[in-house]
Amino acid sequence: MIAICAVLLCCLEVTPAPSQSPPPTASDRGEPVTPILAAPAIDPLKVALGEKLFGDRRLSHDDSRTCQDCHDVATNGASQKRHDVSLNGAELPLNTLTVFNSTLSFRYGWEGKFRTVEADIKSSLESPNTMGSSAAEIAAKLDADADMRDRFFAAYGRRPEGADVIDALASFQRTLVTPGSKFDRWLAGDDSALSADELDGYRLFKSLGCSACHQGVNVGGNLYERHGIFHPLASPEPKILRVPSLRNVATTPPYFHDGSAPTLDDAVRKMAVAQLNATLTDQQASALVAFLGSLTGTYRGAPVGGSP
């Protein structure tokens, strides 16, 4: 009997216990989209300074506007207008893109003219259509403010300089990421995160070919594409655009580079015709809109745009 027990114990010791595999991640699933990670660790003094500058009217030549006026981080990171206006009151030619998750794209702006966030910021500060100023002019204004001088000394160890103005703004912009969407939770292995309609919409998004251009961490933003491949889409110029990110897209109407699509349903249907030569049924359009709604993330613990 003792010998039998010894044999059984030996068997128990060498038999490995069944292991529980972690839930599949986006890469395990082989999905074309990956989740947004938390904001990178950046000097908090530089980030706080950049945020303060983002809402400072002295960044514009005539002290009339702030970055926040067109890129409202309290809502969708952009504006609700089809076209924002220039310093002289004329409409800007292109719809304002959201600043949220912009640093996850490979280029900046609708035409992708700028390779770095610093270059994009410098252009916005200098453009006569937006701020009409320069980093040097802004630094000189801020240097006359004792509180701002203290903030720059704390963050950079010196009085305000143009390069530091741009760096502080870039530091803040790099923190404007919006993780935690329903879709990201699903990608991370939470199978209950998406509804049946949202899942149907995602399957359709892939099967129709939408994910050929809208993929990666930003669900877009990583390649150029010609619009109006099969049929006209919106304003003909510019012909080639940087594919926009679809992150938080449900919160950023109107749509397209000219802001001509007032609703997401309208944009989805027009995109299908123009880019895929496909006419969507009402059910397909509804499913795609449901999926796109699941891409709304959170910023500072709240959903972007206040959507559910």
Rank of each mutant, 00 (worst) to 15 (best):
M1F: 14
A3Q: 15
A3L: 14
I4R: 13
C5A: 14
V7S: 09
V14G: 05
T15A: 12
P16Y: 09
A17G: 11
A17M: 12
P18H: 14
S19R: 12
S19L: 14
A26R: 04
R29H: 07
R29I: 13
E31L: 14
E31V: 09
I36T: 12
A38T: 09
A39T: 07
P40R: 00
P40M: 09
P40C: 09
A41I: 12
P44C: 04
P44N: 00
L45Q: 06
K46R: 14
V47S: 03
L49I: 10
G50C: 04
G55I: 04
R58C: 08
R58L: 11
D63N: 13
R65G: 00
R65Y: 02
R65S: 11
C67W: 01
C67H: 02
D69H: 05
H71C: 05
A78R: 01
A78W: 03
S79F: 00
D84T: 10
V85Q: 06
V85C: 02
N88R: 13
E91T: 10
L92W: 00
P93K: 07
L94R: 06
N95T: 13
N95K: 15
N95Y: 01
N95W: 08
T98F: 00
L104S: 01
F106N: 12
R107M: 12
Y108N: 05
G109Q: 02
W110S: 08
E111W: 06
F114H: 15
R115A: 15
K122T: 15
S123K: 13
E126A: 11
M131P: 04
G132V: 01
I138D: 00
A139L: 03
K141N: 09
D143T: 12
D147A: 14
D147N: 14
R149V: 10
R151V: 01
R158I: 10
R159F: 10
G162W: 08
A163R: 15
D164I: 11
L169P: 13
T175W: 04
T175C: 08
L176S: 00
T178K: 08
D184S: 08
L187K: 03
A188E: 13
G189Q: 05
G189Y: 06
E198A: 11
L199E: 08
G201R: 02
Y202R: 10
R203C: 08
R203P: 07
K206G: 03
K206R: 15
L208E: 02
G209E: 01
H214D: 00
H214K: 02
V217F: 04
V219C: 05
V219E: 02
L223F: 07
Y224P: 00
E225Y: 05
H227S: 00
F230K: 09
P232W: 08
P236W: 01
P238Q: 13
L241D: 04
L241S: 03
P244Q: 07
S245F: 02
S245D: 06
T252E: 07
P254H: 15
G259R: 06
G259D: 06
A261M: 15
P262C: 04
T263D: 01
D266I: 07
V268R: 05
Q275Y: 03
L276D: 05
N277M: 10
T279H: 09
T279W: 12
A285E: 13
L288R: 04
L288T: 06
L295S: 11
G297L: 01
R300I: 04
A302H: 13
S307P: 07
